Deep mutational scan, measured.
Amino acid sequence: KQVQVGDEKYTFDTPEEARKFAEKVAKEKNLKVTEKNGNFHVE
């Protein structure tokens, strides 16, 4: 599963790991997490 933050992409083995990372980054940057096709976008 992938997490996209701006132009950066991070790959994780499980959706749970990806979601945790996305939520942590979103909180730090005051952004929101959206899920698209099983991948997460922080925007």
Rank of each mutant, 00 (worst) to 15 (best):
1 K>N: 15
1 K>L: 12
1 K>R: 14
1 K>W: 15
2 Q>M: 14
2 Q>L: 13
2 Q>W: 15
2 Q>S: 14
2 Q>K: 09
2 Q>P: 02
3 V>P: 02
3 V>N: 01
3 V>H: 01
3 V>Y: 00
3 V>S: 01
3 V>D: 01
4 Q>P: 01
4 Q>K: 10
4 Q>Y: 15
4 Q>E: 09
4 Q>N: 11
4 Q>W: 15
4 Q>G: 04
5 V>L: 08
5 V>T: 04
5 V>N: 03
5 V>S: 03
6 G>S: 05
6 G>K: 04
6 G>C: 14
6 G>M: 08
6 G>E: 07
7 D>E: 12
7 D>W: 08
7 D>Y: 09
7 D>H: 10
8 E>Q: 13
8 E>I: 14
8 E>R: 13
8 E>P: 03
9 K>P: 03
9 K>Q: 12
9 K>I: 15
9 K>S: 12
9 K>H: 12
9 K>E: 08
10 Y>L: 05
10 Y>K: 04
10 Y>W: 10
10 Y>R: 03
10 Y>M: 05
11 T>P: 04
11 T>S: 10
11 T>N: 10
11 T>Y: 15
11 T>D: 10
12 F>H: 02
12 F>G: 01
12 F>Q: 01
13 D>S: 10
13 D>T: 08
13 D>M: 07
13 D>E: 12
13 D>Y: 03
13 D>A: 11
14 T>N: 10
14 T>Y: 03
14 T>C: 10
15 P>V: 15
15 P>K: 12
15 P>E: 15
15 P>M: 14
16 E>C: 12
17 E>P: 00
17 E>K: 05
17 E>L: 09
18 A>S: 02
18 A>F: 00
18 A>P: 00
18 A>L: 02
18 A>E: 06
18 A>W: 00
18 A>D: 04
19 R>P: 06
19 R>K: 12
19 R>Y: 07
19 R>W: 05
20 K>A: 13
20 K>T: 07
20 K>P: 00
21 F>L: 06
21 F>C: 10
21 F>M: 06
21 F>T: 05
21 F>Y: 07
21 F>K: 04
21 F>H: 06
22 A>M: 03
22 A>G: 01
22 A>Q: 04
22 A>V: 04
22 A>E: 06
22 A>N: 00
22 A>R: 02
23 E>G: 00
23 E>P: 00
23 E>K: 00
23 E>A: 01
24 K>A: 14
24 K>C: 15
24 K>V: 08
24 K>T: 11
24 K>F: 07
24 K>P: 01
25 V>E: 06
25 V>W: 02
25 V>I: 14
25 V>A: 06
26 A>V: 01
26 A>I: 03
26 A>S: 07
26 A>E: 03
27 K>F: 12
27 K>C: 14
27 K>T: 10
27 K>E: 10
27 K>A: 13
27 K>H: 11
27 K>V: 09
28 E>K: 06
28 E>P: 01
28 E>L: 05
28 E>N: 07
28 E>S: 08
29 K>G: 11
29 K>A: 10
29 K>Q: 12
30 N>R: 09
30 N>I: 03
30 N>T: 04
30 N>F: 07
31 L>R: 07
31 L>K: 05
31 L>V: 08
31 L>C: 13
31 L>Y: 07
31 L>I: 06
31 L>N: 04
31 L>Q: 09
32 K>R: 12
32 K>P: 08
32 K>N: 09
32 K>M: 12
33 V>P: 04
33 V>E: 03
33 V>C: 13
33 V>H: 03
34 T>E: 08
34 T>D: 06
34 T>S: 10
34 T>F: 14
34 T>I: 14
34 T>L: 11
34 T>W: 08
34 T>Q: 09
35 E>I: 15
35 E>Q: 11
36 K>Q: 11
36 K>N: 11
36 K>L: 13
37 N>K: 06
37 N>A: 03
37 N>M: 05
37 N>C: 13
37 N>S: 05
37 N>Q: 04
37 N>Y: 03
38 G>L: 03
38 G>T: 01
38 G>V: 00
38 G>W: 00
39 N>Q: 13
39 N>H: 11
39 N>W: 13
39 N>V: 15
39 N>A: 12
40 F>G: 05
41 H>A: 09
41 H>E: 11
41 H>T: 12
41 H>Y: 15
42 V>N: 04
42 V>S: 03
42 V>Y: 02
42 V>W: 02
43 E>K: 07
43 E>T: 12
43 E>W: 08
43 E>C: 12
43 E>P: 04
43 E>R: 07
43 E>Q: 09
